[in-house]
Design a protein around this nucleic acid. Structure first.
Length: 205
DNA sequence: GGGCCGATTGTT
DNA sequence: ACAATCGGCCCG
């Protein structure tokens, strides 16, 4: 006699590795609307739709991997479907997902999620307790510390495209994708704010 | 070691 | 307009 299937709780599935192995721009576009899932150390599970991303590719001057493999960006050269977490401005962490085939660096920066306190890449990581402990973590296993599940379909006309925010090189590329009208999306998508480098230039004059 | 820069954010 | 704040990376 066969046993009945034990009832099990519904679990958000995880995108497979083949999803992340695609071209970085394709993955970035596809991640808008996907569900970012995070299990905290105490077991609490947080979920929310990704509403803003940016693509960073090989040979892209703004990409951390542009000048080759270093300890910091090594994860980007590894297999797709893993988390690349970096520390910025002495106080914030930022979450990326590694794309492209193993050996080819590429990543998508998760800039905002449609959940409380997760607007902006730095605030997202602070709110969801993401730091170096998640650098290199697999995103391929549901109910792990970090994974991404498919979300509600998003149509082309719901997606906005613009230049990336806060970079000083390769500003011409329109590699930022976001859900139009979502309140968590960064409000001022321009690069008019001075970077520290530009401030130094200004000081010398 | 030294010095500079930065995929941010919030305040003045 | 700019301060907070420190790891990464390049240079020597």
């Amino acid at each position: 006699m066969s046993r009945l299937n034990p009832s099990k709780p519904t679990l958000s599935p995880a995108y497979p590795q083949e999803f992340y192995a695609q071209d970085t721009l394709t993955v970035a576009r596809a991640l808008v609307g996907a569900t970012l899932c995070r299990k905290l150390a105490d077991g609490t599970i947080l979920q929310g739709p990704i509403v803003e991303v940016e693509a960073y590719t090989q040979d892209d001057p703004a990409c951390h991997a542009a000048r080759g493999k270093t300890p910091r960006c090594a994860v980007m050269f590894g297999p797709p479907g893993f988390a690349y977490v970096y520390f910025i401005y002495g106080m914030y962490y930022c979450l990326n997902v590694v794309t492209e085939a193993e050996g080819t660096p590429g990543a998508v920066l998760i800039r905002a999620v449609g959940a409380e306190g997760t607007n902006g890449p730095g605030k997202l990581c602070r709110e969801w307790q993401i730091d170096f402990a998640q650098n290199g973590a697999s995103l391929l296993k549901p109910n792990s510390e970090l994974w991404i599940a498919p979300g509600a379909p998003v149509t082309e006309n719901q997606i906005g495209i613009s230049e990336r925010i806060g970079i000083s090189q390769a500003q011409e590329h329109q590699w930022r994708f976001f859900l139009k009208g979502n309140p968590s999306v960064t409000k001022h998508p321009n690069n008019k704010s001075k970077t520290n480098k530009q401030k130094q230039e200004r000081k010398r004059t």
